[in-house]
Design a protein around this nucleic acid. Structure first.
Lengths: 399, 399
DNA sequence: CTGAAAGCGCTTACAG
DNA sequence: CTGAAAGCGCTTACAG
């Protein structure tokens, strides 16, 4: 029996069989389980469209003049330009980007690589990037490395080669060889949430932000402060969780609190992961009086578990999140606000700069490339999920 | 003083000035107000990459043979094919899609048009679409019609012409002329949430789902049931809100309840809109005992207002949402679950079918094109925000 | 200011 | 099974 990975497409006798992505069961009712799709493999091109020759003929000029006129280049007589514009308008002409790309080598397109676009954070980053790049005339292609099907694709497998002039890579697994290949191919690179050796990057002030959030808890009197983190370990230099953990440790140290590894649990940046993490924390013989989660989703999941366990928030346990997700305000979650849209916009701006640079041959080969590392500021937003620990917890540890 | 629209890009002396998108104020602390970006206008292409000629030279065959071998076409001797593959591997060769496009007319790319990708629903739809299309070898370009800057772009302004073979348009403003132009250009079209005359579409069972949700409330005994809808009116045939409203009216009628226009208020599918709508409903002399919101975000916003007003949910007012957003489970929201990922996957499958069809000239010009309209099923998920109305409200109307 | 022509890197009949 | 050559629709020196 052949094993077909969910979400995969396989071709059989000229037809494509597309396995549906399995759905997580959530909530009460059963989940709709879709049947596999069977569709024909793709086919032929569309209807012919007017070309630059048609415009040239109609305007009674050469194609060279049309090209110049349409792109606003100098050395075109105003009357001629007007005639060309008129002809192009009449024919509803638009230049073929593929032909332009072939002639110039420029795609006027950039790629965005994220783990999964359905996630709140990545969707917002994308929105910010697309806004700026679209305004600058660029097309934006999206590549998910962790599709909903759970299949991870590495940067190397992504088919962006020759498709894009630049790439914004968010929180991706980056190895030096892959990066070198990308840069060698002339693709400009900007990263978010990770740092690449010779490319600009944008990150939020993770360490400072986390320190501030946890300091808020120590100032309230908490000593048993849990951290709901990302993965158990991250071998790929996705630095965000590491930095937030350092900030957490900074704050504990500043308050003279000995870190307890049992209080640090993975939450995988999901609602369910946050809930599971909280479950685990509640089984400890000496459970925390406060929890700092590295994302609002995880904090919401944790808060739900606390509520269901009949534990008062913030009376018995305080909760702090990270992001300032829209929902945070609605459930009164104390959290660290970061401007994700702005993160995307900054990355797009850095990429536009990078696209402007001459050829990679000069500065980059010499290793003299300017690599701007930008830090986006954050704010601690105090709401109603944090308060001093219960009295008994403050006296001894026999809560 | 020149007025610069936020989010806009203007060029001055070869540099681009990018105005930051204004941020909505939410929550407690102040909002970070970013300064405008100033970046150089974009520049030159990348480093040369190996071409098909290089591969041909290394494998000692013609470029025609390389082309055939690499694409798995027949009429290539096994030994030759192996040599070509080896050469391509050695050179790390990848064919230039632009050149291929020019020669074949096919882009092997599709566009996705959504109002704003940062929204939960659209991000998920995109994830579903990208998953299937990427597996089928297509690139996916994203176009936002309502960027975060609030500037609306119509389908006509979008630069997808000649860039893509197909288009998935979600909830967009569609006029017939624009559609005809798209189809005439040979771009295959599939819509989600709206229906176009001669193109396949995917929608959820909006009417039935809404009827079911509201029937749940009437069965509990509610008579004063409010509807938090989308816009005040929608001139563009974005049919989802209309159908959900019809389902609402169906349920009222089935229960013998006279509809009250004062109970129908716009919520714009946002948290804040839902909150504002609830505020407004509370000012009514005869406020509702139950609220059906067309999205979970709006329901969450409404629930927040109720909580802050000291009104018990579901003791005094019941709330039902739509979507089954991840957060819904965490706040115990009764809602209508729809499988958004599947919606995207179905649309992608329909588009792949459409891309397979011969030329538009035949079937479509004759108006005989098959236009599959698919309906994705939904489930009512009962949680803890619905209950019978308070006793006094059931007796008379003097709550 | 304008045009003729080469060239970008592929694919595809057409021969052999 | 393989190759020579035309052609896809642009852009860009180079002349004039």
């Amino acid at each position: 029996v052949p094993v077909v990975r969910a979400g995969a497409v396989r071709e059989t006798a000229g037809r494509w069989v597309i396995e549906p992505t399995p759905r997580t069961r959530r909530g009460g009712a059963g989940t709709h389980r879709p049947a596999p799709l069977v569709v024909p493999a793709p086919g032929e091109p569309g209807t012919p469209r007017p070309t630059i020759e048609d415009v040239a003929a109609l305007a009674a000029v050469s194609v060279a003049t049309v090209s110049r006129a349409l792109r606003g280049l100098p050395h075109v007589a105003p009357a001629t330009r007007e005639r060309v514009l008129e002809a192009a308008r009449e024919l509803d002409y638009v230049a073929d980007p593929a032909a332009a790309r072939l002639a110039t080598g420029r795609n006027v397109a950039v790629g965005l690589v994220v783990p999964m676009i359905a996630h709140w954070y990545y969707a917002r980053v994308f929105a910010g990037i697309e806004g700026v790049l679209a305004a600058a005339g660029y097309d934006v292609l999206l590549y998910q490395t962790a599709g909903p099907s759970g299949i991870d694709r590495s940067l190397d497998e992504l088919p962006f080669r020759k498709r894009v002039d630049g790439l914004v890579v968010v929180d991706a697994t980056l190895d030096d060889a892959a990066l070198d290949r990308i840069v060698a191919a002339g693709v400009r690179l900007v990263t978010i949430g990770v740092r690449a050796p010779r490319s600009p990057s944008v990150t939020v002030e993770n360490r400072r932000a986390a320190r501030q959030a946890v300091a808020h808890l120590t100032e309230l009197g908490h000593r048993r402060i849990a951290l709901i983190a990302g993965m158990d370990e991250d071998p790929f230099g996705f630095s965000t969780p590491l930095e937030r953990r350092r900030g957490y440790e900074d704050a504990l140290e500043a308050a003279g609190v000995e870190p307890d590894p049992a209080l640090v649990v993975p939450g995988h940046f999901t609602y369910d992961g946050g809930a599971a993490a909280m479950q685990r924390l509640l089984t400890l013989s000496d459970p925390p009086t406060a929890v700092f989660a590295m994302s609002d989703e995880m904090a919401i999941g944790a808060a739900k578990v606390l509520r269901e366990a009949g534990i008062d928030v913030p009376g018995q346990v305080s909760v702090v999140g990270f992001d300032d997700h829209e929902v945070a305000a609605y459930i009164g979650l104390t959290t660290v606000r970061q401007d994700v849209l702005w993160t995307g916009e900054r990355a797009a701006a850095l990429l536009l700069e990078r696209l402007r640079e001459p050829s990679a041959s000069r500065s980059e080969r010499r290793g003299a490339a300017p690599s701007a590392h930008e830090s986006v500021p954050t704010h601690l937003v105090l709401r109603s999920t944090t308060a001093p620990p219960p009295v008994r917890a403050r006296d001894g540890r026999d809560r």
